[in-house]
């Protein structure tokens, strides 16, 4: 598995898109910090971008890599390796290379700016950790879709739809149900609904460290108690981990029956 990982990783790290992606984050980091001069504001803007972009890029890279390397995967499948290892290697290769682009692309400008002296270092690290989680989650989800869909165009469509669902549609349904049922107690509902979408959960985790922490109190005790505590933080991170682990398990399960 490590060998496959290594080569997938090499391959992706040399791809033009990885450079573009890396350069994008690098430019973003520099522009935000040196034009804005306000680290905490930069973190908020970055959050807005990371929460939308990392899932999208993860999704697209995931399906693209799967379909583009289909023939090569077949060659690998004929080698004496367990097929689960091949796909886990590829999966980790993509996720790691995307994560590296993210962490280096944003990390360099922040270090150049003197982040280590800034109090925002914790918020910023949280941002990178969550961005990495989103990479791993959405590459896993898109790999699942690609594995289940033979047709490349269809697979691509489903993957984009999946991203759109988590990034936009889900929140739309969420908001409409909140407004429609606003005479009922909605604390628990909104808590569960937030937890069930990795993008929403990531957003809340970052906002908790930023501007929402006081505003959240406004929405009732359940929310404040839950997210305000270490237990809440721990639980949220565990749920993010579950969002990685479950698709990976399904991937391995799917692979047992899959024909190439």
């Amino acid at each position: 598995m490590l060998k496959i990982l290594k080569y997938s990783f090499y391959d992706l790290m040399r791809s033009r898109w990885s450079y573009v992606y890396f350069a994008f984050y690098l430019a973003l980091g520099f522009v935000l910090l040196f034009l804005n001069n306000d680290v905490s504001k930069a973190v908020i803007t970055l959050m807005n971008i990371i929460i939308v972009l990392t899932p999208m890029i993860g999704t697209i890279f995931g399906v693209m890599y799967y379909y583009n390397s289909k023939e090569f995967t077949e060659l690998l499948l004929a080698q004496p390796i367990n097929r689960n290892k091949i796909f886990m290697g590829q999966y980790l290769g993509i996720s790691l290379s995307l994560t590296l682009s993210l962490v280096l692309g944003l990390g360099i400008p922040f270090i150049a700016y003197g982040l280590f002296k800034s109090s925002a270092i914790f918020d910023f690290s949280l941002l990178l950790v969550i961005g990495s989680f989103l990479n791993f989650i959405f590459v896993a989800l898109s790999y699942n879709i690609a594995l289940s869909t033979e047709n490349k165009i269809k697979g691509f469509g489903y993957a984009i739809l999946m991203w759109l669902f988590f990034a936009v549609i889900y929140d739309g349904i969420f908001l409409i149900s909140l407004v429609m049922f606003d005479q009922y107690p909605l604390d628990k509902f909104s808590l569960i609904a937030t937890m069930s979408n990795p993008i929403d959960l990531s957003r809340i985790l970052i906002l908790l460290k930023l501007d929402i922490s006081a505003l959240l109190g406004y929405t009732g005790a359940v929310f404040r108690k839950f997210f305000g505590t270490n237990l809440g933080m721990f639980l949220s991170i565990s749920i993010l981990v579950m969002w990685v682990v479950l698709p990976v398990i399904r991937m391995n399960f799917k692979l047992r029956k899959k024909d190439f």
Partner: peptide, 21 residues
């Protein structure tokens, strides 16, 4: 305006959907 009516909606602050509406 929505948060005024339904305070729980605040959990959607800075979501892409909210930006769109």
């Amino acid at each position: 305006y929505i948060v005024n009516r339904t305070p729980e909606a605040l959990v959607l602050l800075r979501s892409l959907f909210v930006d769109i509406i």
